[in-house]
């Protein structure tokens, strides 16, 4: 799984063999294909971009063109062992409702997102006075799909207020794993494994 994006690699390494997963915002299905081939996972995907759906279906994956904001309501309760939302939370209109659905549909949920409190982001805004553009946030303010920027501390307090249990957390900076200390400042990217309390 070395050719997977680092956050997807973390998710892939922590999914149970033979699990049923729903990958929301699955892109071209790289994670689903890797999990199917290495862990015999029964994977389903939702993806908004038609060209990504074509690519995923060509890999033999079951992917539905759909929107995390509107189409998750169609999925039955507890149909999956894991619901996965990688680098998609910050693009949704209602991240809170999307997260509710993830925890309703899956017994557990993996959520990964770019940390808006990462020091480079902070310094870009503080010193440059401009909206930050980084490898994880490459678009300008006017055309970015990231409409709900979130920091690791924001996310933690949000989870606490909703009484969501954190079963695992992983942090990345420069695509390399790092320890949790000062994560809100030092991590460029976070991955959480969540469960309803």
């Amino acid at each position: 799984m070395s050719n997977l994006r680092p956050d997807l690699s973390i998710i892939a390494n922590n999914v149970r063999d033979g699990a049923r997963i729903l990958d929301v915002g699955c892109g071209d299905g790289s994670l689903m294909a890797a999990l199917r081939d290495t862990k015999k996972v029964d994977a389903r995907g939702v993806e908004i971009e038609p060209s990504n759906v074509f690519a995923a279906v060509s890999k033999g994956l079951s992917v539905i063109q759909g929107d995390a904001d509107t189409d998750l309501a169609d999925y039955p309760d507890n149909g999956f062992d894991y619901a996965i939302l990688s680098q998609t939370l910050q693009t949704t209109h209602r991240p809170d409702l999307v997260l509710d659905h993830l925890l309703r549909i899956g017994d557990r949920a993996f959520v990964s997102f770019p940390n808006f409190a990462y020091w480079r982001v902070r310094s870009s805004l503080l010193l440059g006075g401009r909206m930050p553009v980084t490898p994880h946030l490459p678009e300008g303010w006017h055309d970015t799909p990231n409409i709900h920027h979130v920091t690791i501390d924001d996310f933690r307090s949000f989870l606490k207020s909703r009484k969501v249990t954190v079963e695992g957390e992983w942090f990345l900076s420069g695509n390399k794993p790092r320890k949790g200390g000062l994560a809100n400042l030092m991590a460029e990217h976070a991955v959480f494994l969540l469960r309803k309390s």
Partner: peptide, 21 residues
């Protein structure tokens, strides 16, 4: 088509769907 997809999801079927322009 989405209603069918919804039903197939509820039945746990392996289903792909795309709307073409």
């Amino acid at each position: 088509s989405r209603q069918i997809v919804h039903a197939l999801n509820a039945a746990g079927a392996a289903v792909s769907f795309v709307e073409l322009s």
